[in-house]
């Protein structure tokens, strides 16, 4: 709980974070940037969980525990994504979407 900051404000921030992430995912052309955008989305959710837990339902720790697991999973996700990007980079020497993409409709 931070005095002077209400839950609405934090949730607004997380929502903005979330939409920045979605926007970035759609508009970015670099695989790493896309990955970062995804992380933004995940972080928005993490903050959401913690804040909701802390402000609205402080007697149980469900949201906080949830956020730890999200972080862990996000780490695994990133590790795997980076590994695949490396492999792709080895073959195409690029992490730009338009240069790596060969399969289309």
């Amino acid at each position: 709980m931070i005095p002077g900051i209400s839950i609405t404000e934090i949730l607004t921030v997380t929502s903005i974070l979330f939409f920045i992430g979605v926007y970035g995912f759609i508009t970015r052309t670099n695989l790493i940037s896309i990955l970062i955008s995804v992380e933004l989305i995940l972080n928005a959710s993490v903050i959401n969980f913690v804040v909701i837990n802390k402000y609205l339902y402080p007697d149980m720790l469900q949201g906080v525990v949830y956020s730890i697991f999200i972080i862990a999973v996000a780490a695994a996700e990133t590790a795997l994504a980076i590994a695949i990007i490396f492999n792709l980079y080895k073959q195409t020497s690029s992490v730009e979407v338009k240069e790596t993409e060969t399969m289309k409709y």
């Binding site: 896309i34 995804v38 959710s45 492999n87 790596t100």
Partner: peptide, 30 residues
Amino acid sequence: RRSSEGGIKLILSASLASGISLFGISMLYA
């Protein structure tokens, strides 16, 4: 190369989807 490309496509879109899903869950939790 297509294999890697498929992999990165899958994981990025999977992450996005699970991220969106998580955001939804946080709202349900709220």
